[in-house]
Simulated assay, not measured.
Amino acid sequence: MRSRGPLGRILGEHPVGTAFVTPYVVFLAAVFAYPLGFAVYMSFHDYFFTAPGAIVERPFVGFDNYVTVLSDPAVRRAFGNVLVFLVINVPLTVVLSLLLANALNAAIRWRTFFRVSYYVPYVTASVAVVGVWLFLFNSNGLVNSVLGPLAPDPSWLVNSSLAMPTVAIYVTWKQLGFFILLYLAALQNVSGDLYEAADMDGAGRWQRFMNVTVPGVRPATTLVVLLATVTGANLFTEPYLLTGGGGPDGASASPVLIMYQRGIEQGNPDVGSAIGVLLVIGVLLLALVERRFVGKEES
């Protein structure tokens, strides 16, 4: 067997494949790995913005920034808010996208029209869609006009109890089209023989759905849960636009929004980085729990 040189050991047995993968590896390192590592560095130092080219000392402060973050009531409330968001958003996303994808996978009239209709909000600019929702859910909006005396007071987006659930429902609706496409792709891999066997056993529509469709798309469900969790934990644009920056009184603020306020607006990037590192750790732990739970069901 011919021994390979140092370059051959680096490129492996298939150098062409390595060449194709290298740009993506560089992209990940530049866009994800380096910023994350720099954020960890900032979170352990007294880091502040300076003029370009200025050389200043940024002393190591240990866990002081993390103590500051964990002792801040606004930060603790923001993490609680995002948990409320995920509890509403993730189950709704999974259930609605699977049900709608299953319906759109059937031979119905105007199927293409409905598929495009559900996908349009996902690709539409958030600013434009938020304007519609502000019209619907403000104090004198269409929703309150329809509800009449049943409308909440204060209204939806200025109500400390309803602001975050309203944001969660908005995000669920806006992103639904993307997850419907994921389920539609997964449904193509569910064998029709399984449905025929279920029909021969006398299974009804609901039984076919629960015993054939749901197990058949479980890998896609795992992906949907993880993606919904990660995107939900990074919530920023929606509360920033819908509730004027996390209002009322921080009831809809997210950790990313607080990180922006502390790090950029207030000029404390070290504190903002500590919030970001804690958020990354929390999302990883939550994703691990979800993955193990779904894996247990698959086994």
Results as ranks from 00 to 15, higher is better:
127 V>T: 15
155 S>P: 13
158 V>I: 11
157 L>E: 06
150 L>S: 12
159 N>W: 10
124 T>M: 14
151 A>K: 06
160 S>H: 11
167 V>E: 07
132 V>M: 14
139 S>W: 00
125 A>E: 14
159 N>K: 09
147 L>K: 07
159 N>T: 11
126 S>F: 12
127 V>M: 12
131 G>R: 10
161 S>Q: 14
145 S>K: 01
154 P>M: 01
128 A>Y: 05
169 I>N: 01
153 D>C: 00
154 P>Y: 03
165 P>I: 08
120 V>P: 08
136 L>W: 05
158 V>T: 09
132 V>H: 06
142 L>G: 07
156 W>P: 00
126 S>M: 14
129 V>T: 15
144 N>A: 10
157 L>F: 01
131 G>P: 12
140 N>C: 00
121 P>M: 07
155 S>M: 00
137 F>E: 11
158 V>R: 00
121 P>H: 05
166 T>K: 03
164 M>W: 07
125 A>W: 03
130 V>H: 08
127 V>D: 14
167 V>K: 03
124 T>N: 13
169 I>V: 15
131 G>W: 08
147 L>C: 04
130 V>A: 15
160 S>L: 05
167 V>S: 06
156 W>V: 02
146 V>N: 04
141 G>K: 06
164 M>L: 08
163 A>R: 00
156 W>N: 01
119 Y>R: 04
130 V>F: 11
151 A>D: 10
158 V>F: 01
158 V>Y: 00
145 S>Q: 11
139 S>Y: 02
122 Y>E: 01
121 P>C: 10
156 W>T: 02
127 V>Q: 11
147 L>V: 05
135 F>G: 02
136 L>S: 07
139 S>C: 01
147 L>A: 09
135 F>E: 06
153 D>E: 12
155 S>H: 11
161 S>F: 08
123 V>W: 07
143 V>L: 11
139 S>E: 15
160 S>T: 12
155 S>C: 01
147 L>W: 11
138 N>H: 08
161 S>V: 09
155 S>G: 09
123 V>I: 15
139 S>I: 02
158 V>A: 01
124 T>L: 14
151 A>W: 12
133 W>E: 08
154 P>D: 03
125 A>V: 15
143 V>E: 08
160 S>N: 10
119 Y>K: 04
120 V>Q: 08
136 L>N: 05
137 F>V: 09
144 N>I: 00
168 A>V: 09
165 P>F: 12
159 N>R: 08
153 D>G: 10
157 L>C: 05
119 Y>S: 07
128 A>N: 06
145 S>P: 00
150 L>H: 09
123 V>H: 10
158 V>E: 03
148 G>H: 04
161 S>D: 15
145 S>G: 06
136 L>M: 14
157 L>G: 01
129 V>F: 13
121 P>G: 09
